[in-house]
């Protein structure tokens, strides 16, 4: 999604306000004039300044830009769906991996994405299974990363 520069600028100004209000409660070190709030406030001040410039530039630019416009790909339902599905896939993995385990959730993620992108079902199943097992072997067995076992604990 492309938005007008003024919108980005307004968001930055809001971010500056948020940082200033959040840092107001930070404690000071006794005897020191500078506390943990100084640096974030300087950065936020810079962001606010840049935001103000962007608001001006966005409002003054001719011809006037729309507030927000969809990128060409987002107008195609198929492409937008693919992006949404990829994001949903990551969220699914975060939520499901602990219960289902790595092998099941990774296979499901790969198979669904490949099917959506138009890989034939048999090919999708084989590549998804093969890559899941390769990742499981290299990461969990060789590198000893504690990938969630989930359902496989019951089987073992």
């Amino acid at each position: 999604m492309r938005v007008n520069e003024a919108v980005i600028g307004a968001l930055l100004l809001a971010l500056m306000a948020a940082v200033f209000s959040a840092t107001a409660a930070f404690p000071r070190m006794p005897g020191q004039p500078y506390g943990p709030d100084l640096f974030p406030r300087m950065i936020a001040g810079g962001l606010g300044l840049a935001g103000a410039l962007m608001v001006l530039r966005g409002l003054l630019s001719r011809p006037r830009q729309p507030l927000a416009a969809l990128a060409p790909w987002a107008r195609s339902a198929r492409s937008a769906g693919a992006v949404a599905l990829a994001l949903a896939g990551i969220v699914f993995y975060i939520l499901a991996a602990d219960t289902l385990g790595f092998v099941v959730s990774a296979f499901a993620l790969l198979a669904v994405l490949m099917l959506y992108l138009g890989v034939p079902p048999l090919a999708a199943a084989i590549t998804a299974a093969a890559s899941t097992l390769v990742v499981e072997y290299t990461f969990a067995s060789l590198m000893r990363i504690p990938l969630p076992r989930g359902l496989l604990v019951v089987l073992a």
Binding site: A86, G89, L110, L113, M114, L117, S131, V135, F139
Partner: peptide
């Protein structure tokens, strides 16, 4: 690419988890 992209995504997830 339609096979490669999902696999890269899985690598991203496992890598970040590691």
């Amino acid at each position: 690419r339609r096979i490669l992209l999902p696999i890269i995504l899985l690598f991203c997830i496992v890598g970040s988890f590691a």
